[in-house]
Nucleic acid binder design. Structure first.
Length: 419
DNA sequence: TCTGGGGTCCTAGGACCC
DNA sequence: TCTGGGGTCCTAGGACCC
């Protein structure tokens, strides 16, 4: 038995947690730059706000219905996510944290008759300890647990649901495109073949599916039929780390784009070092605003192999700037830049280049310096100390006009309670 | 005016090996 | 006249997820 615990409207629930005045009110959370809607409360969904809708297109609707909009506040969501996950992990040992707002539980150790009540108790505990409402789907495979969770939210509107009891009848109610692992392209192809529901897929010959699509599709169909094709997955070290952002306003100068690339290097290296990894490849890219058909378009990226695997922000920034110099062309209105660190490997031991190996002394110095960077920035906040390459005024920085306070991670933002 | 960011896995095809 | 069998590694592109 597997359970999938999924936080309801997670970002919206986080925002509402410290704003009791917004309980039962429609709210939406926006992507970076206050661009698109990426989370909606049930009230906002009921008013017809679609997922991914550009904010500027629904501004009138928001005004009309007093929909409260927030810029995204990932520090807050990350912190509340950790609270939810640690509550779950204290209650049950076999947990896979699947995303910021979801966790799978392997409940094989639990007697079958206790599964449903255990999940209900846990759901209540999470709500009590963190204030975040969740839905729990239960099934004999992870895909079925996902389906059960979907039914919880979309069909039955209850906190816990076990799909094992009337699997076939329930699968007939789920469109094939709503199955975990079946996206837009595949669902189009399946429908064209007369496979419309999760049930249809579950009774399609698995080997035929593998031949015509891929092993992924085969596994999904088998899981729907109740044959588990995978258990909980251990957290693996990252294979790549990306940092990129649209600019608040389009940029034309090399200096500004270069400074933003340097900031991305700092952010990516920070993540890299937290995970004790080093990068062997570096990808740098820029592009213009694809929605501005009236402006000339340009989209370019470049990838290089780093001679020695590294986590030194100075080296990575130097190379990233060299890459940028090769792809940057004047005369364009740039909208976005970013970098990606790839081919990540553990820091120790790492294979160095035979002919250009840095001395042990140089490596130790780097480590000492980077350690000081990390310590200062952890203590006083990101980019308290940084390379001059990042610049200071940051004219490209993103818009976040509607951001809520860092209620749980900054002393000055702690909510005040009057008794 | 305005349209997100960050990941993973799989497959096919080409190049290479013995 | 006839032209093997069994592999690995790498990359690009496409699909998916949150």
């Amino acid at each position: 038995m597997f359970a999938l615990i999924d936080c309801n409207n997670f970002y919206a629930s986080c925002e509402r947690l410290f704003r009791p005045d917004l309980r039962d009110k429609p709210i939406v959370v926006l992507s970076n730059n206050d661009g698109c809607v990426i989370a909606r409360s049930n009230e906002a969904k009921a008013l017809g706000v679609a997922m991914g809708e550009p904010f500027f297109k629904i501004k009138a609707l928001c005004k009309q219905h007093k929909i409260h909009a927030f810029s995204s506040n990932y520090t807050l969501y990350g912190d509340l996510s950790q609270r939810v996950m640690s509550t779950i992990e204290r209650a049950w040992p076999n947990v896979e944290v699947y995303s910021i707002d979801e966790a799978f539980l392997d409940l094989s150790e639990l007697p079958l008759e206790l599964v449903d009540s255990f999940c209900l108790t846990l759901q209540k505990l999470i709500l009590k300890e963190t204030g975040i409402p969740t839905s729990v789907g239960i099934g004999t495979t992870k895909t079925l647990a996902k389906i059960a969770n979907y039914l919880c939210k979309k069909v039955f509107k209850i906190p816990v649901f076990n799909v094992a009891h009337q699997r076939e009848a329930l699968l007939k109610q789920v469109a094939v495109g709503d199955v975990w692992g079946i996206g837009r392209q595949w669902s189009k192809k399946l429908m064209a073949r007369g496979i419309h529901t999760a049930y249809d897929l579950s009774i399609t010959n698995a080997h035929l599916l593998k031949k015509q699509y891929s092993v992924v599709m085969m596994r999904t169909a088998m899981e729907l039929a109740g044959i588990a094709c995978g258990g909980l997955v251990e957290a693996e070290p990252k294979q790549s780390i990306m940092s990129s952002k649209s600019f608040g306003e389009m940029q034309t100068s090399y200096t500004c784009v270069s400074q933003s690339v340097s900031s991305h290097c700092a952010r990516a290296v920070e993540k890299l070092r937290q995970q004790h990894l080093v990068a062997q490849r570096l990808y740098v890219f820029v592009h213009t605003n694809r929605f501005r058909e009236d402006l000339a378009q340009y989209c370019q990226g470049i990838e290089i192999k780093l001679i020695n695997p590294t986590d030194d922000v100075r080296l990575i920034t130097t190379w990233a700037k060299r890459c940028l110099r090769r792809i940057f062309k004047t005369g364009y209105h740039y909208k976005k830049a970013g970098i990606c660190l790839e081919d990540l490997i553990p820091k120790d031991p790492r294979q160095m280049d035979m002919f250009h190996q840095p001395s042990d002394e140089a490596l130790a110095k780097t480590e000492q310096l980077m350690g000081v960077f990390d310590t200062i920035n952890q203590k006083f906040g990101r980019s308290t100390i940084r390379l001059a390459a990042e610049g200071h005024s940051k004219p490209w920085d993103m818009r976040r006009q509607l951001k809520s306070p860092a209620y749980t991670t900054r002393w000055s933002d702690l909510p005040r309670v009057r008794l």
